[in-house]
Amino acid sequence: MTKLKIAIQKSGRLNEDSLRLLKNCGISIDNGKGQLKASARNFPVEVLYLRNGDIPQYLRDGVVDVAILGENTLVEKGEDLEIIERLGFSKCRVSLAIPKEVKFNSLKDFEGKRIATSYPNTVKKFFKENGITADLHVINGSVEIAPNIGLADAICDIVSSGSTLFKNGLKEVVKMAESEAVLTSGPDLSSEKQEILDTIQFRIQSVLRGQNSKYILLNAPNDKIDSILELLPGMRSPTVLPLAQKGWSSIHTVVEGKRKFWDIIDGLKKRGAEGILVVPIEKMVL
């Protein structure tokens, strides 16, 4: 049987989030502690646990077919590889940081400085675009200590909460790029493997759509329905059902997008909606 080989990071938050996504897609992975390869018991998939930085080359070589990895790694080592789905988790940014006591004026402050980083290609490209010349020191591992031991004047690294920078006496001064987990594919997939990937991608899209949406049920007087419907987006249109109480109806719809959700709820209240019920959606299949 043809199996699709998926690479994910061998440990850490990206590993956990990737496995959770596959599980939510109905793919059960049988893996034990320390295992570097595992098969799904209910789907033609094999998972390989690899170092994040090695995955782009494994994709090019055909060792694995697809991968879930950080976009920052793809920018650094796999710009030739296509992003086929943005996954919305493991979000971070690639930033420049300096010691807290050092005053920062502008990007020009990095001219001629020593920069410690695990992302030399990203830094070189960014500095070239901005006309900055600097001395890069490539470090594989924790770069935050470099300024404290006199190895560098600043660092470039991925930043999530910023707590690691703070603990090491550093401050973030320039955000170079934003990153999230992405699904990417190798250059040549057989038709059989592409069909498996299409199925997985369809399931992923359904899971992500559900995570970013809420199902809303509310009651409203009939003379307020038109005003309320103006606020309610839906997959096609909201559902309106008469209630037992004369002159009232129940309205059902799906609201997508976390940023505008509370604005919509506030607007519904102002326009006469009552008994608003918000229900999470596990998956949304279109």
Rank of each mutant, 00 (worst) to 15 (best):
W248Y: 11
A97D: 01
E180N: 11
K167C: 10
K3N: 03
L243K: 02
L14S: 08
P187N: 04
E16F: 02
K246F: 01
T73R: 04
K37M: 13
N212E: 15
C92D: 14
K10D: 08
S39K: 04
P242C: 03
I132N: 10
N148F: 07
P233T: 11
S28T: 11
N72I: 12
N219L: 03
E46Q: 05
A244M: 12
S39E: 02
K108N: 14
V64I: 10
V174Y: 08
L189E: 06
L232N: 08
A154L: 05
G267R: 04
L232F: 01
T199E: 15
V75E: 14
V240W: 00
L243D: 06
D198C: 02
I132G: 08
V94S: 03
K128E: 15
K214H: 11
I155T: 06
D65C: 11
K77A: 12
E46N: 00
I6R: 01
R236A: 06
I98T: 03
N15D: 02
K125A: 14
V207E: 05
E79W: 05
F126L: 09
G62Q: 10
N130V: 06
D266K: 13
Q9A: 10
C92P: 00
N168L: 10
V240M: 01
G169D: 15
V254I: 15
K33D: 08
V94C: 07
G234Q: 01
F110P: 03
D223C: 04
L277E: 14
N72R: 09
P56H: 03
V278K: 05
M1K: 08
L48H: 13
M284L: 15
I200N: 07
I132A: 10
K283L: 05
G32V: 00
T199C: 12
